[in-house]
Nucleic acid binder design. Sequence first.
DNA 1: CGATTTATGTATTGATCGATACAGAAAGGA
DNA 2: TCCTTTCTGTATCGATCAATACATAAATCG
Lengths: 220, 220
Amino acid sequence: MSSRGRPRSFSREQALKNAMHLFWDRGYDNTSLADLTRAMGLNPPSLYAAFGSKAQLFIEAVDFYGRTDGAGIWDYIETAPTAKEAVRQLLTRTAENFTRSGEPRGCMVVLSAPQMAGGDADVCDALKARRLEKQLALEHRFKRAVAEGELPPEVDCSGLAAYVASLQHGMSIEARDGAARDTLMAIGACAIAGWDAMIAASGRATATVPAASASISPSA
Amino acid sequence: MSSRGRPRSFSREQALKNAMHLFWDRGYDNTSLADLTRAMGLNPPSLYAAFGSKAQLFIEAVDFYGRTDGAGIWDYIETAPTAKEAVRQLLTRTAENFTRSGEPRGCMVVLSAPQMAGGDADVCDALKARRLEKQLALEHRFKRAVAEGELPPEVDCSGLAAYVASLQHGMSIEARDGAARDTLMAIGACAIAGWDAMIAASGRATATVPAASASISPSA
DNA sequence: CGATTTATGTATTGATCGATACAGAAAGGA
DNA sequence: TCCTTTCTGTATCGATCAATACATAAATCG
C-alpha cells in the first residue's frame, strides 16, 4: 500500500520474536511494557505504531510462537500414518520441544495466561481458541482413523482427544516445574502403552470412570 | 498469647475464604488489593495487619484451598486399597471437583500462577512445591503397591506418577476452558482403561516413547 | 480510673502500569 | 524544493498498583 514516510528502523519480525520470548517466559501479566520496549529495542510510540497495544502484540506473539518455536509439535497429526502414531509423535515432539535448552519450558499457549477472569478478554479468548483448535484437530484425526478402519466405530473420539490434549497440556506444567526430558518421555510412553486398551474400552464407558478390576478386593 | 487490644471486627476465616475464591478465579496477578479489600470487607490496614502482604495472603489462601475446596481430591491416595483404585478415585474426584457449579473451575494450585519467572518468587515456589508434593505422594503410593505385590518391581513409579500428575494438571486447563464433567470423566476413563497395559509395559521402556505397533505400516 | 495494646477508617504514599503528546527526523511524491 | 507521510526519541499522561501514616476506637491490665 504505502511506501511513503520514514522507514521503520527495526526488524518487525525480530522485535516480535523478542516479545514472544518474554511473554512465553513470564506470561502476559508479568511482562510490562518497560520490559518489552527494552527487550525489543524500541520506544513505546514505535511499539504502539507497529503493534497497536500490549494485548494485540501478545496475540501476534502467540501466532509467531505457533509458526516458530511451537511449530513441529502438532504438525504431524494429520500426516502420521495412524492415529496411534500421530499421538506418539505428538507426545515425543512435545517432550523434546518442552525441554530445549535456552528456551522457556512448556507451551506458551498453555502457560502464558490460563486465567479466564479478570484479565484481558481478547488475550484469554485467543489462547483458549488455540487450545481447543488443537484438541479438535485430534478429534478430527481420530474420526478419520475410524473412517479408515484403524479404530472401531464405537470409539469416543471426543473423549480420547480430551484425554490426549489434557495430558499434553499437563506436560507444560511438568516442564515448567523442572521435569527432565526423560520424565516427559516416560509420560508419553505411558499413554502409548495404554493406547490399545483405551481404544478397546472406549465407547463402552465414556461418562463414568469404571471401578478398578478388583484383583485386590476393595477395603473390607 | 495476647488477648489484649481492640478485638478484630471480622472473621479471619471468612475473609481468607473470600480472598481464596478471588485468587482462584482470577489468579494472583489479576487480583488487586482493591479487589481483595472489597471482597473481604475490610480496609487495607486491616488486611496487612492480619495477613502481612498480598503474597503472604495468597499463600495462606492456597493452604485454605487445600483444606477446603481442594480437599477430597488427593485425600484417598494412601487409603485406597490399590494403586489403580487410588488413581481412579483421584481422577473421578478431580472430574467432580473441577466442575462444581458456583465455584471456579480447575485447580487453584495449577491455574493461579503457573509462570516461574517475573512474578513473586515466594508465590511461585509455594505453588510448585504443592504440585510436586502431590506427584511425590503418587510415586510413594506406587512404590508401596510394588512392595505389596500389586505392581511388578520393574515398574517406573516415578514416570507413572509424572503421567498421572500431568493428566490431572491438564484437566485443570480443560475444566477452565469449559469442558463438561462427562468429558473430564472420559479423560479419567481413558487412563484407567490403559492402566494395566501401562503397568505391563512400564520399566521396559521408560526413557523413550516406543514406536507404535505397526498394525498399519508407517508411511512407505 | 489511667496506661497499654491492638484494630479500624480515612487519606495518601511513591512506584509502576499501559498508553500518548509533541516535535523533530527521514523517506516519497509533485 | 516544498509538502505530505510515517517513524523516532523525549517526556509525560492519568490510572492503578501494593503498601502505610496517622489519628481514633475498643479492648485488657494494673
